[in-house]
Design a protein around this nucleic acid. Structure first.
Length: 992
DNA sequence: ACAGAAGCTTA
DNA sequence: GTAAGCTTCTGTT
C-alpha cells in the first residue's frame, strides 16, 4: 500500500446485526432459509463495489476487506469476566446467516478476516493503523460508536445505511468530544449492551462536559474532589476503578498480531459468474439482475451454485458434485461461463442439484433429497483426531461452516451413567472426524484398563469443545440430542443453538411407516445403511463398552454417525418450510429437548424400604394364592403360562364360555376370568388376584429399586420425544407414566415416590383435557357451556341422552355416559362400546345413535375428520402438528376403520399433548420469574409433578396452574376454559 | 439370544 | 373404540 491508496474496512459483524434488524423480519428463501441479513449485506457490498468503479464518486477504494468477530470470547473477558456477559443469543433465524455472510464475502472476491481472541473492532483498528503508516487512507464501513475513537486525518467512517460520512466534525457534533477523547468518554458512560460498567449516573452529556473541563480521564479522576455536584463527585470517586477498567475495555487494540497483510486486500474486479451463482442461490433476483448488467454477464446462463451450500458452507472434502460445481463456476472466465460448464463438472444428477429461482419450496426440497440420496459414503475418508491442535483446526472449520453435526460416544445407553469415550463431528458431507478420548486397551478389567495412547486429554478436549458447543452463532446438529445434552451437562457443557434430526423427521413424517432413528432415516433419505453397532461392539454376551472398541473401527462408526446427521439435516430442514411445519418444530419440539434433559437429570426420590415391604407383602399374598390355585386345580402348573392355564380351565376343568385368541390359544384375559368368576367359579377370581400381585411385584416393587442411580440416589426415567404418533411423550427405563393408581393395592406403590427431606411434591393435572379439546375443535355448544359452567360433564351427557335430571342420577347411568364420552375420544365403535360396558352390540349402537342425535356437531366433526384424512393422508392438531395415516385409504375395511378411529383420536390426543408441551416449555421461566424453587420432575400426559421446598407449595400452585391453564395462548384462544387441579404432599400418592 | 404373543399398567 | 412400555412365556435361532 502506498500514499493515495484507500482501504475500505467493512465491519461485517456489526453489519450483520444492523441488516438483520433493519430489514423486514422473516425474509426467507423459498425453502424457508432466512436470508434477510444476507440480502442487506450483499446489497450494501455491491453498492460499495459500484462506487469503487465509479471514479466520480469521490472516495475510491483500492484495498478492501470485510472483518468479522471470531467468537464471543476475547482477551477482554480475561480483563473483565462480565464483559458482554449479558448479551443474549442471536435470534434464531439469524444463526444460519453468519456462515452465509462469510460465503457472500467470498463470492464478492473480498478477503474475509477474523481472528481468535479479538473482536472485529480490534482488527479494524490494527489495519487502519497499518494503512496510515503506509501513507494510505482508510474508510471504516460502520456506524458503531466504538470505532469512532479511530477517526482522524487519514481515517474516516461511512454509514452505508444512512449514506453518511463520519469525520472529526461529525464525532464532535454527536458526542461533544473529538475522536481521541471517545475512549475516555465511553469509559465514563459505560455501555449497558456490552456490560461495560462506566460510572453510574454519568451519561454522554455529563461525560463530555467533564472531559471538556478536566481534559482527560486521568486528570478528572485525580482532581475529582473539585467537582461541585455532590452526587456526581461521590460517584466518580467511588467508581474510579470501574472507569479505569472500562477504559481498557473500550480501547481498541491497534497492535493485533495479524497474519494477513494489506497487499492481500487489493481490490479485485468482481467475478460476475461467481457472484451471480451465489446470488441466484440466495434468490436475490433484483440484485442478480443488477450485477448481471453491470458485469456484462448473461445471468440466464449461470447456474445457481448447488443448493447444498444454502444451509452451510460447502468447501471441504470429497463432496462429489457439490464441491466440484462451484469451483468450476468460479474458475470459469466470464466469457465462458455457462450452465453447461458448471453442470459438466458435476455428476449426471447435476441438473437436479441446481436450485431454480422458480422452484416451489417442495420442488427444491425434493431436489435436495434427490441429490443427497446419490452421494456416496467413504469410511476411509474419516479422520481420527489425536491431538489438540488438529481438534482446534476442526473446530475452526466448524465455525467457518456455521453448522456442525456432532455425536457423543459413551459406555452406556443411560446418559446418567454413561462415561464419555469419544466425540465425532462433521462439517460438510463426507467431511467428518472422531476424537477418541477414553478408549481403553483390551484386557481392561485385568490390568486396570490402561488408556490407549495418542488420545486428546479429556480435559483439553472438553474445554475446546465447550467453546464451540456453547457458541450460539454455530448451529449444532445431532440425532437425538437430548442424550448428548445430559452427557455433556455432566461435563459442564451447555449446548446453545441446535437442531435435532430425529425431531425434524418426527415433525415431518410422524405416523408414516418407519421410525426416526439414525438407521432408518439414513436408509430412507440417504440410501445408505450405516455400520451396525453390533459390528463394532458385538452383541449379546459378547458386547463390549465403546471404550473397548478399536479406535479405527470407532472412527468409521462414530464419524459416520455425525456425517449422517449432517446430511440428514441438509435434507430435512428445508422440508420443514416446504411442508409448513416450521412452527411445530420450533415451538413444540426443539425447545422441549433441554427441558426434558433437565427433568431426566433431576430424577425423583423413591423409597427403597417402602417398595421392599410391599414386595414382601405381595410375595406372601401370591404364594398363598398359588397354593389355593394348585389345590383347586388338583395339580401344580405354571400359573403365569396362559397356555397351561387355558388348558386347565377350559380343557381339564371344562369351564364354559371359552374364547380363542387369534393364534388359536384359549383366551385367559382378565375379562374372560371376570366373567367366569361372576358365574360363581372360584378359581378364575384367584387367578386374577394372583396376576395383579405378581404384576405389581415384578414390574414395580422389584424393578424400581434397580433404577435408583447409585450417585444421585434418585430414579431417572428417559422420555422419548419422537416415539408416539400423536405427539405424546413416552417414558421408559423405567416407565413412570404407568405407575398404578386404580386399585388400592397398586396405589400403594405411589407412596414410595417421595419428596426429599424438607421438600414437597406437587401434582398438577388437567381436568378432562381431551373432552375440552373436543368441545373446542368440534364447536359443541352444550359441551362448551357445560365446561364454562363447571358442571359434571359425564352427568350432563347422561342427562341429555337419557333425559334424567343430574340431581340424584343413578351411578350406573352416569357410568355409561362416561364410557360413551371416552368412546367418542377414541373414535367410537359399537363393538368397542359394547365390550367396555358388557352390553349387546345392538344396545351399544342405540346409545351411539342417541348420542349423535343429541350432539349432531360431534358426528359432523368425526365425518369431517375422516374426510380430511382420506383426502390428505394426515390430520392436524390445532397447533399444526401433522399426524399421518396413509392406511386410511386401505381397501381392507377393518384397517380403514381402525385408521379412521385413530385419526379422530389423534386430533384430540395430539392437541392435548401439544398443550402440555407448551406448558412445560414455559414452566421453568415462569417459576424462575416468580422466584420459586420448584422444579418439574415428571410428566404423565395430562399431569406434571414438581418438587419444591416445603414453604413454597402454596405460592407455587397458582403459578403452575396459570401456566398450564393458559398454555394454548396466544397461538390459540380456546373457546373452552382449561382447568388444572393441583395439590402438594409428601408422596405422589397423597399429592394426586 | 431374540422376537412375538399375551397380559397388565397408565392417560 | 385411542395412545404407550414392561414382564413373562413360548418357540425359534
Amino acid at each position: 500500500m502506498k500514499k493515495g491508496d484507500h482501504l475500505f474496512l467493512v465491519d461485517g459483524s456489526g453489519y450483520i446485526f444492523r441488516a438483520y434488524h433493519a430489514l423486514p423480519p422473516l425474509t426467507r428463501k423459498s425453502d424457508g432459509l432466512p436470508v434477510g441479513a444476507v440480502s442487506g449485506f450483499c446489497n450494501m457490498l455491491w453498492k460499495l463495489m459500484l462506487d469503487a468503479r465509479n471514479t466520480e464518486a469521490g472516495v475510491v477504494p483500492t484495498h478492501f476487506a470485510v472483518i468479522f468477530d471470531y467468537s464471543s470470547k476475547t482477551f477482554r473477558n480475561e480483563l473483565y469476566p462480565e464483559y458482554k456477559a449479558n448479551r443474549s443469543a442471536p435470534p434464531e433465524d439469524l444463526i444460519p446467516q453468519f456462515g452465509l455472510i462469510r460465503q457472500a464475502t467470498k463470492a464478492f472476491e473480498l478477503p474475509c478476516i477474523e481472528m481468535e481472541g479479538f473482536e472485529a473492532d480490534d482488527l479494524i483498528a490494527t489495519y487502519a493503523r497499518l494503512a496510515c503508516e503506509a501513507g494510505g487512507d482508510t474508510t471504516i464501513v460502520s456506524s458503531d460508536k466504538d470505532l469512532m475513537q479511530l477517526v482522524g486525518p487519514s481515517v474516516s467512517m461511512y454509514d452505508p445505511m444512512k449514506d453518511r460520512q463520519i469525520n472529526v466534525p461529525e464525532v464532535v457534533e454527536k458526542w461533544g468530544v473529538p475522536p481521541e477523547k471517545m475512549i475516555d468518554l465511553q469509559a465514563l458512560t459505560g455501555d449497558s449492551v456490552d456490560n461495560v460498567p462506566g460510572v453510574p449516573g454519568i451519561g454522554p452529556k455529563t461525560a463530555a462536559q467533564l472531559l471538556e473541563q478536566f481534559g482527560d480521564l486521568d486528570t478528572l479522576l485525580a482532581r475529582a474532589a473539585e467537582i461541585k455536584q455532590d452526587k456526581r463527585r461521590q460517584s466518580i470517586i467511588d467508581n474510579a476503578d470501574k472507569a479505569r477498567i472500562s477504559r481498557e475495555l473500550v480501547r481498541l487494540k491497534v497492535d493485533v498480531p495479524v497474519t494477513d497483510v494489506l497487499e492481500d486486500f487489493v481490490l479485485q474486479p468482481p467475478n460476475g459468474p461467481k457472484l451471480i451463482g451465489f446470488l441466484k442461490t440466495m434468490e436475490f433476483t433484483s440484485l442478480t439482475r443488477r450485477v448481471a448488467e453491470a458485469t456484462g454477464t448473461e445471468a440466464g446462463e449461470v447456474e445457481a451454485v448447488p443448493v447444498s451450500v444454502q444451509w452451510g458452507a460447502d468447501r471441504h472434502g470429497p463432496d462429489v458434485g457439490s464441491g466440484a460445481a462451484p469451483a468450476a463456476t468460479a474458475a470459469a472466465p466470464a466469457a465462458r461461463a455457462n450452465g453447461g460448464n458448471a453442470a459438466a463438472a458435476a455428476p449426471s444428477s447435476a441438473s437436479a442439484e441446481s436450485g431454480n429461482v422458480h422452484d416451489t419450496p417442495t420442488a427444491l426440497a425434493n431436489k435436495i433429497a434427490e441429490r443427497a440420496a446419490s452421494q456416496k459414503f467413504d469410511h476411509a475418508a474419516y479422520v481420527t483426531i489425536r491431538d489438540l491442535a488438529t481438534l482446534n483446526n476442526w473446530i475452526a472449520e466448524a465455525r467457518q461452516a456455521g453448522v456442525v453435526a456432532f455425536d457423543t460416544k459413551t459406555t452406556s445407553l443411560d446418559p446418567m451413567q454413561a462415561e464419555l469415550v469419544g466425540f465425532s463431528l462433521a462439517t460438510a458431507p463426507g467431511r467428518a472426524a472422531y476424537v477418541p478420548l477414553a478408549h481403553k486397551s483390551g484386557r481392561g478389567d485385568l490390568l486396570g484398563g490402561g488408556l490407549v495412547e495418542n488420545q486428546v486429554p479429556v480435559r483439553d478436549a472438553i474445554a475446546a469443545l465447550k467453546a464451540l458447543l456453547e457458541d450460539a452463532s454455530v448451529l449444532k446438529v445431532a440425532q437425538n440430542l437430548k442424550y448428548d445434552l445430559v452427557v455433556l451437562d455432566r461435563h459442564g457443557i451447555d449446548v446453545h443453538s441446535f437442531d435435532d434430526t430425529m425431531l425434524l423427521s418426527y415433525v415431518l413424517d410422524g405416523g408414516t411407516n418407519g421410525g426416526h432413528g439414525t438407521d432408518s432415516l439414513s436408509e430412507k433419505w440417504l440410501g445408505h445403511a450405516p455400520i451396525p453397532f453390533k459390528e463394532i461392539a458385538g452383541s449379546g454376551r459378547n458386547v463390549v463398552g465403546f471404550d473397548q472398541v478399536d479406535i479405527d473401527k470407532a472412527t468409521a462408526y462414530a464419524a459416520e454417525d455425525a456425517d449422517v446427521a449432517l446430511r440428514l439435516w441438509r435434507v430435512l430442514k428445508p422440508r420443514l418450510a416446504a411442508k409448513g411445519v416450521v412452527s411445530v418444530y420450533e415451538r413444540l419440539e426443539r425447545p422441549l429437548v433441554p427441558v426434558l434433559a433437565r427433568m431426566e437429570q433431576r430424577g425423583i426420590s423413591v423409597d427403597r424400604q417402602i417398595l421392599s415391604r410391599l414386595s414382601g407383602e405381595l410375595a406372601q399374598g401370591a404364594a398363598r394364592l398359588e397354593d389355593e390355585i394348585n389345590a383347586i386345580a388338583g395339580e401344580r402348573f405354571n400359573i403365569g403360562s396362559p397356555k397351561q392355564l387355558g388348558d386347565i380351565l377350559f380343557g381339564r376343568m371344562g369351564l364354559p364360555g371359552g374364547t380363542k385368541t387369534k393364534t388359536g390359544q384359549w383366551s385367559t384375559s382378565a375379562q374372560v376370568l371376570e366373567d367366569l368368576a361372576a358365574e360363581g367359579h372360584e378359581l378364575p377370581r384367584k387367578i386374577v388376584d394372583w396376576r395383579q400381585m405378581t404384576k405389581l411385584k415384578s414390574t414395580y416393587t422389584d424393578a424400581l429399586p434397580g433404577f435408583i442411580n447409585p450417585e444421585t440416589k434418585r430414579v431417572h426415567t428417559s422420555y422419548a420425544l419422537a416415539a408416539t404418533t400423536t405427539g405424546r411423550l413416552s417414558s421408559s427405563d423405567p416407565n413412570l407414566q404407568n405407575i398404578p393408581i386404580r386399585t388400592t393395592e397398586g396405589r400403594k406403590i405411589r407412596t414410595a415416590f417421595i419428596a426429599d427431606k424438607g421438600n414437597k411434591l406437587i401434582s398438577a393435572d388437567y381436568s378432562q383435557i381431551e373432552l375440552r379439546v373436543l368441545a373446542h375443535v368440534a364447536d359443541i355448544g352444550q359441551l362448551k357451556q357445560a365446561f364454562a359452567d363447571g358442571v359434571d360433564i359425564h352427568a350432563m351427557t347422561a342427562s341429555e341422552m337419557f333425559s334424567v335430571p343430574v340431581e340424584g342420577m343413578p351411578s350406573e347411568i352416569r357410568r355409561r355416559a362416561k364410557a360413551i364420552n371416552f368412546g367418542i375420544i377414541y373414535g367410537i365403535s359399537a363393538f368397542g362400546l359394547a365390550n367396555q360396558l358388557s352390553i349387546p352390540r345392538e344396545e351399544a349402537s342405540d346409545y351411539i345413535r342417541k348420542y349423535f342425535e343429541r350432539f349432531p356437531g360431534i358426528r359432523a366433526y368425526m365425518d369431517e375428520t375422516k374426510a380430511f384424512c382420506r383426502e390428505n393422508g394426515y390430520v392436524e392438531t390445532i397447533f399444526g402438528r401433522r399426524i399421518h395415516y396413509p392406511e386410511i385409504r386401505s381397501s381392507n375395511p377393518s384397517v380403514r376403520a381402525f385408521n379412521e378411529r385413530a385419526s379422530i383420536n389423534a386430533r384430540l390426543q395430539g392437541t392435548a399433548a401439544d398443550i402440555i408441551r407448551r406448558a412445560m416449555i414455559r414452566m421453568e421461566d415462569a417459576l424462575v420469574a416468580a422466584r420459586l424453587s420448584a422444579r418439574m420432575l415428571l410428566q404423565v400426559h395430562d399431569e406434571l409433578i414438581f418438587e419444591t421446598v416445603e414453604n413454597e407449595v402454596e405460592a407455587t400452585i397458582p403459578v403452575v396452574r396459570h401456566v398450564m391453564e393458559n398454555a394454548a395462548m396466544p397461538a390459540v384462544s380456546m373457546s373452552v376454559p382449561l382447568h388444572v387441579d393441583a395439590h402438594g404432599a409428601n408422596s405422589w400418592d397423597e399429592a394426586h
